[in-house]
Computed example of a mutant assay.
Amino acid sequence: MSDATTGLNPAFAQIDSLQLNGGPLIICDVDEVVLHFIEPLEKRMARLGMEFIDTRYRLTGNIRHAATQDLASYEEVYDLLHGFFDDPDLHQEPVPGASRALAELSRTAQVIMLTNMPARFQKDRERVLASHGVPYPVIVNEGAKGPAVSRLAERIDGPIIFLDDSPSNLVSVRDAVNHAHIIQFIADPRFFATAEIVDGAKLTSNCWDETHRFIQGILSEHMATR
């Protein structure tokens, strides 16, 4: 989505304000990658009389009203998600191993969190992540993530590793930054088991130990060639 006054993606100003050293960069999504999302969302949906139709990896078109079996509209899904992040009692548990892996990887690479949500949630998102040992800059984006990652890539000479659960975001980044290492990560075991593998993904995983080893291999290879 473009900013009406600048014509730029609203994430660009946030990206341009970052202090980057040009070295390896890990760009990591938040929900269902470092924080569980599906399970707490289902709890909220149950309170509202809603449910997933199945474990296909999408939201719009996959949520219905339990009592009537009617499909939830786009507007209802939009309100559901915004209500989810507005909920003061929201408890998103960390995905096991995520904070430890990122802490170790941050010794040799910069780490940035790139998440799709309105800007008003940014500070809360940073606070929640920091409370779970994930104290990295949070960039809030709207729409496809390819343009934001491309903007970041302009300032990076080393490898770029991008982790996300959303197939559309993975494809967007794959097409925008063809040298990026794309990792498809889905923490929820049900949605992971039914996910279609994204063409071009270097790794598809729901385990941070495995993901850590894979990323460390990329970083070690880079350091060996310097």
Rank of each mutant, 00 (worst) to 15 (best):
V173T: 08
I53D: 07
V171W: 02
K145W: 00
F162H: 05
A144M: 10
R213I: 03
E75A: 14
G83Y: 09
R226V: 14
I63P: 07
L80R: 04
L114E: 04
S172M: 07
Q69W: 07
H222I: 03
P10T: 11
L129W: 01
D209N: 11
S220F: 13
L18W: 04
S166E: 07
I15W: 08
Y78I: 06
E104N: 08
G143L: 01
A144S: 11
N141M: 07
L170T: 09
A119W: 00
S166T: 14
S205K: 12
D199L: 08
D29H: 03
D3C: 14
S220Y: 12
A101K: 01
G200Q: 08
Q69P: 01
A72R: 02
S172C: 10
Q122P: 01
H181C: 08
L81I: 09
R44L: 15
S2A: 15
P189H: 04
C207I: 04
D3L: 15
R226I: 13
L90F: 09
A103R: 11
H82F: 12
A176Y: 04
N21K: 12
V77Y: 03
H132M: 00
F192C: 09
L59Y: 00
R56N: 13
D86K: 12
N178S: 10
Q110K: 08
F52K: 09
D165I: 08
A98D: 00
M113H: 01
N169M: 07
S2I: 15
V171T: 15
I139P: 09
S150K: 14
P40C: 13
M45Q: 08
D79P: 06
V33E: 03
F37P: 02
D164N: 14
V138K: 02
I186Y: 01
M1F: 13
F85R: 12
S17V: 11
E126L: 06
A153T: 05
A148I: 06
E154F: 12
R190K: 10
E93V: 13
D157Q: 15
E51Q: 14
G7R: 11
P94Y: 11
A130E: 09
H132N: 12
K202Q: 13
E32I: 03
L25F: 05
A98P: 00
R125L: 01
S99V: 06
F192S: 06
P159M: 11
N116L: 04
R213Y: 10
